[in-house]
Write a protein that binds this DNA or RNA. Sequence first.
DNA 1: AAATCTCACAACCGCGACACG
DNA 2: TCGTGTCGCGGTTGTGAGATT
Length: 489
Amino acid sequence: MSMASESDERMIVPNSGVDSPSTDEANSLANVGNNVPLKKGPWTSAEDAMLAEYVAKHGEGNWNAVQKHSGLSRCGKSCRLRWANHLRPDLKKGAFTPDEERRIIELHAKMGNKWARMAAELPGRTDNEIKNYWNTRIKRRQRAGLPIYPPDICLQAMNENQQSDTMNTFSSRDVPMPPVNNIPFPSVEFKGLELNQPLYPQPLIDIPSNSLLDIPMSSLLAQGFRPSYQNKSLISTIHPPKRLRGSESLFPGSNTPISNLFTNGSQYQSDYLTSSSFFSGSQAVLNGNPSSEPGWAMKLELPSLQTQTGTTWGSPSPSSPLPVFESVDILIQTPPTELTQSPQNSGLLEEVLYESETIKNSNSNSFQQSSRAPNMANDVMENSARVLNETKWDAYDEEVSPLVKEEVSDLCPMQYDDKVETTNQMILSRPDLLLASNCLAPMKHPTNVMGTFLGDDWSRDCKQMDTGSTSSAQGRGRNSCAWNAMPTV
DNA sequence: AAATCTCACAACCGCGACACG
DNA sequence: TCGTGTCGCGGTTGTGAGATT
């Protein structure tokens, strides 16, 4: 497919306002000075040739001079992008190879959405390509109800992070850790949630992909067990206007790997495993309340919802209907701001302190709920392992792409009977799996769990079994079967 | 056959970092 | 130290093609 249309002659006038290229550069002298209308949209082959010729003569860089010297009616930024993404001679064309795909997954597990850094590790590939590939991938996998990272990559990321962490022992030195027995679990992120999103229960796979899938595995797991103020996600939620660069983080080492949690055998780990936020959050998913996502799921960035985060718990937008299901989970509910006078816009530290106080108060109410957590964890894991092994993937051969199939099969590579423990470890290391199993296991309905993993395909089959309907599930009512067919608990 | 949906991709936009005068 | 220009990054949007209804 070529986006470059020879007929595209959209021209814009610099400084014309809305349609001008990015304000910083469109207003620069390089563009305004010539008083030449800048063109936007797809590049023509003639423009490509002009740009290539310019770069051949003058080399890369000084992109704003391109317009002057080459006669191109494009802003420098556009030229740079075109060159970097399409004209560079060292670019590799065509689809990603399986090796490259795997590499991207690995890199994303380690880096998150650091496309440029990932591109640097993939010769001939651009950040844009990788970004597009990833976005497409997570959509696909979300629709299929599959976890984004294959287990082996999780383990690999854990191992690598563990190694790097031994060399970078920031966690105990550089960051003031909360007292072990008084860990404030975060709820501030809830403020940024969109209330008018499709209501759960549409199980975990309908958690916005942006929130669950766009962060490195290391962060994903770490966030599940650590106060979120270690992560920039929280910061960006609290202070949306202030963006942090990817390489930055409020606290050094915010990408601290999960491996600490599992290898250090610390009290910290066990405290978080039994923390009320973790398990009650999963329980809350069953309530069908989007506000009641598990703690780890709530701590995630919402990059694609930047413009949708206006709703807060304290001031529900009139256009944002409240969830149908009232939350019964007091652990997860953030007190309405108008009632508690949260220090709005008062700065991070203050806000964190405030939230910490709030949480402490609710913690006292939640102790009983959380006390059964360890047993729940075991139940969940056993159920999950069993269900995974009962699943017959072969039936879905034709509908699942090879890569997806490979990753799905990775989920249950062992026999339940003799490798339960391994499975449990795997699930423990996968918050997404844990959530899946955690929220569904209590139903004692294995097929629901299957639906979570199989998504559309299973939903469709299930629906057909239940209702005889032949309608496609594509893009609509995904996973509905798991819930429609779910017996009332 | 037409309408609709999904996918893949290209391009744009806003923002922050950095260099330099 | 400050202002300006340039570059790069990450998120979002627009669009054509193909698939599906």
